[in-house]
């Protein structure tokens, strides 16, 4: 198991895409720190990029990696290796280096330029949310790639999933809010935010940067959630968003006829 994982990690680390990904975040963060000026603004800008790019990259990396590992997987499955172990190695071998590339790329410039005073905790929340999002979307990508054998369709589905979760979802929520504005929408809205991993990560950032505005709304449910255990609940659900798709992926992997 560990040998498999180690092999897979080394394999991923050799890919130029991963280096390019880390370099991308390195450059973005460095540029923000150099030209962004106000300290809080840097983290907010980085947060926006994270929420958009990390899910996309997780999905694209995840699907292509699983398709490319197909011959290797089939070879290993002929050996006495448990399918659960192999899936764990494949998943961990991609998710861990990708998350590490993100944390390093986004975190290193702060190590060089210094963390803006008073924003250390916010930076940790941001990096943690980015790492978890990586885990979520690599798992979702594996699910997609296991369901579709056709590579092009799989990739298309992955990008579609990204569009849906990162962009259209919030648009739909806003539309529903406008249409049913006269009703008490607090609870459904909160549930909608907690059901989407991108929104979960965003809520974690909101709590750090827009706490004052979140407490402005008169609704009791909001006040109780955001004034109380909001951050913990969001973080726990984000973890669940890693575990549940990964578990489904493992099940699909075990049952799949290669």
């Amino acid at each position: 198991m560990t040998r498999l994982l180690g092999y897979q990690v080394r394999n991923v680390l050799r890919s130029r895409w991963l280096a390019a990904y880390a370099l991308f975040f390195l450059l973005v963060t460095d540029a923000l720190l150099r030209f962004g000026g106000d300290d809080g603004k840097v983290l907010l800008g980085l947060g926006n990029v994270t929420l958009l790019v990390v899910p996309l990259v997780g999905l694209v990396f995840g699907t292509t990696a699983l398709y490319e590992a197909r011959p290797f997987t089939e070879l290993l499955l002929a050996q006495p290796v448990g399918r659960g172990q192999l899936f764990a190695a494949l998943y961990g071998g991609l998710a861990l280096p990708t998350a590490a590339a993100y944390v390093l790329g986004a975190g290193l410039p702060f190590a060089l330029h210094g963390v803006p005073s008073g924003h250390g905790a916010s930076l940790l929340v941001l990096l943690g949310a980015g790492a978890l999002l990586t885990g979520v979307f690599v798992a979702l990508a594996f699910l997609v790639a296991l369901r579709t054998d056709d590579r092009a369709r799989g990739l298309g589905a992955a990008v579609g999933l990204w569009l849906a979760l990162a962009l259209l979802y919030d648009g739909g929520v806003l539309l529903l809010l406008a249409v049913f504005g006269d009703h008490a929408l607090e609870r459904p809205l909160l549930a909608a935010m907690l059901a989407n991993p991108v929104d979960l990560a965003r809520v974690l950032l909101l709590l750090r940067f827009d706490g004052a505005a979140l407490l402005g709304y008169t609704g009791a449910v909001f006040a109780r959630f955001f004034g109380g255990p909001g951050a913990l609940v969001a973080a726990a659900l984000l973890l669940a968003w890693v575990a549940v798709p990964a578990a489904f992926g493992a099940r699909a992997f075990r049952r799949k006829d290669f």
Partner: peptide, 13 residues
């Protein structure tokens, strides 16, 4: 629509 404030900083907004 006051509760919409939770959509702050989303890409769509």
């Amino acid at each position: 629509h006051e509760p919409a404030v939770v959509l702050q900083r989303s890409f769509f907004v």
